[in-house]
């Protein structure tokens, strides 16, 4: 057998985790003056030593409602940090449409993802644009949502100077957030990169077919 082993599964696990390491940030815009801090856990499902597990990825985020319908946020990816990579994201959530009965609220979120490693001091930047529809329920405290996150790779070349032909990495996401007085609990499923084959790429991702990867994430949020 060749190298069908740990390194490459782990690389792949972590690599895709960079692009999908947290549930969607603040799908429903915060109220003006409201702040939230979140911890998130989970990741893409992989077959690791015969067992299907979500990648155990940990992240933190904080958001603040600057005005009604406009939330700013920033996130820190702790698992990346443990590997010597400072990975942060920052963006805003803009409410485009307020929910009204069965008509969902709609929010859009431009995000900047930035990474820098302490080993070779390489910096990466990936812009991201998300759009989500959400439905309030339970006296409007809880909400469920459906959305599309889009990562964009602006590089013209990839490893070894070969052309980078994959510039769009979409992620379909569906989630539910249960809200208590001070806390919120989120469960989210992602279908990561459904437009790309997951064959012959060194890691046995779990997916619905031969494309992409499925991810499961949980989030706990404290409201202020």
């Amino acid at each position: 057998m060749g190298v069908k082993s740990g390194l490459y599964c782990c690389i792949a696990l972590l690599a895709i985790a960079f692009a999908s390491c947290a549930p969607a940030r603040y799908v429903r815009p915060l109220e003006k003056g409201q702040s939230k801090v979140s911890a998130t856990f989970g990741g893409p499902l992989i077959n690791y030593s015969g067992t299907t597990i979500p990648a155990p990825l940990l992240g933190f985020a904080a958001g603040h409602g600057f005005k009604d319908g406009l939330t700013g946020f920033a996130g820190l990816h702790a698992t990346s940090l443990a590997f010597g990579v400072l990975h942060v994201d920052a963006g805003v959530v803009k409410g485009l449409l307020k929910p009204n009965g069965w008509i969902p609220g709609v929010s859009a979120s431009p995000v900047a993802n930035m990474m820098f490693d302490k080993w070779e001091h390489k910096f990466s930047f990936f812009p991201q644009a998300d759009i989500n529809a959400y439905w309030n329920y339970g006296k409007k405290k809880h909400y469920c949502y459906l959305g599309l996150a889009n990562w964009f790779d602006l590089h013209s070349t990839r490893a070894e100077g070969e052309p980078q032909t994959k510039h769009w990495l979409p992620v379909v996401q569906v989630g539910n957030t249960l809200a208590a007085k001070k806390w919120e609990y989120t469960l989210e499923l992602k279908y990561i990169a459904p437009n790309y084959s997951n064959r012959d790429i060194v890691v046995p991702y779990i997916s619905a077919g031969n494309t992409g990867a499925i991810g499961i994430y949980i989030g706990v949020t404290r409201k202020f």
Partner: peptide, 11 residues
């Protein structure tokens, strides 16, 4: 593995 042009030094 990642689709994105991430440096391997991250891992």
């Amino acid at each position: 593995a990642t689709v994105l042009a991430l440096p391997s030094s991250y891992f």
